[in-house]
């Protein structure tokens, strides 16, 4: 290799085209942030659809939202927040070089993630039983609260559930990818790859996980908390 200007510090993790570890770390971090920026726009398309339809069909959205389980939604939010804590602590453990603690915290994160997906799966199954899945078998026989004669248009309720499944489905897909990423991170931690000098993968994976958490932080009030007081 005609590579005469190699940097002074040469660790095995330093890829050849970077001058030093700091440049490499900054590049990776900026890359992940940019990716999260694209993710905002990815979910943004659905948020835009949600905004338009919620303004157009507010009553239907409110009644349909009330058929979702508030306790389950709240618990799932708490589960994700716990997973974010374990991620943040695992990054800290990696910074301090506590290799065993890193593994424990990463495994905990993975378990919280799986718990979230399990609860979500249970919720989806409920919707299936209640015939709230959009399509030919969809049925929605609800009325405005306090006005039993004012039936809700089931077609518009279907729009709410279409958005519900699209948004929670895309979020769940991101969770599944996150679980995959964390499985790899656990494997890397197991092999002792992370040191106080090099733990960029934990940091980057952590950023991704926190972002998926933030998406849920918005999905929770938007989907579960419409007009709950009636």
């Amino acid at each position: 290799m005609s590579d005469s200007s190699v940097a002074v510090e040469h660790t095995p993790e330093l890829r050849h085209h970077f001058a030093d570890m700091e440049q490499q770390r900054n590049a990776a971090s900026l890359g992940m942030w940019l990716f999260l920026g694209t993710e905002i726009m990815f979910f943004g398309g659905m948020f835009c659809a949600y905004l338009i339809y919620r303004l157009a069909y507010y009553n239907e959205f409110a009644v349909a939202s009330r058929t979702l389980s508030l306790p389950i939604g709240t618990i799932n939010t708490a589960v994700l927040i716990c997973s974010s804590l374990t991620v943040a602590l695992s990054v800290r453990a990696a910074q301090l070089g506590k290799q065993k603690l890193v593994i424990v915290l990463l495994v905990l994160t993975l378990l919280f993630g799986l718990a979230f997906l399990g609860i979500k799966g249970y919720e989806w199954r409920e919707k299936f039983v209640e015939h709230h899945i959009p399509g030919s078998s969809f049925s929605f026989d609800e009325a405005m609260p306090g006005h039993p004669e004012a039936k809700i248009d089931p077609r518009h309720a279907q729009i709410f559930f279409s958005l519900y499944f699209a948004m929670t489905g895309m979020h769940a897909l991101h969770m599944i990818i996150g679980v995959g990423i964390f499985a790899v991170l656990i494997l890397m931690a197991w092999r002792g790859r992370f040191t106080p000098e090099y733990h960029t993968p934990v940091e980057i994976g952590g950023l991704y996980w926190h972002f998926v958490d933030i998406v849920w932080i918005y999905l929770f009030p938007l989907l579960y908390l419409i007009d709950r007081h009636k």
Binding site: N26, S29, L30, W33, G37, M41, G44, V87
Partner: peptide, 28 residues
């Protein structure tokens, strides 16, 4: 705090977040 933006000296990170949110605002 969890994503350490408060403690980074890197203005670029803030810029990325702000521009993505700004673009979302344009769309909405």
């Amino acid at each position: 705090f969890f994503m350490h933006v408060k403690y980074t000296s890197e203005k670029l990170t803030t810029m990325v977040i702000v521009s993505a949110l700004f673009w979302l605002l344009i769309l909405l």
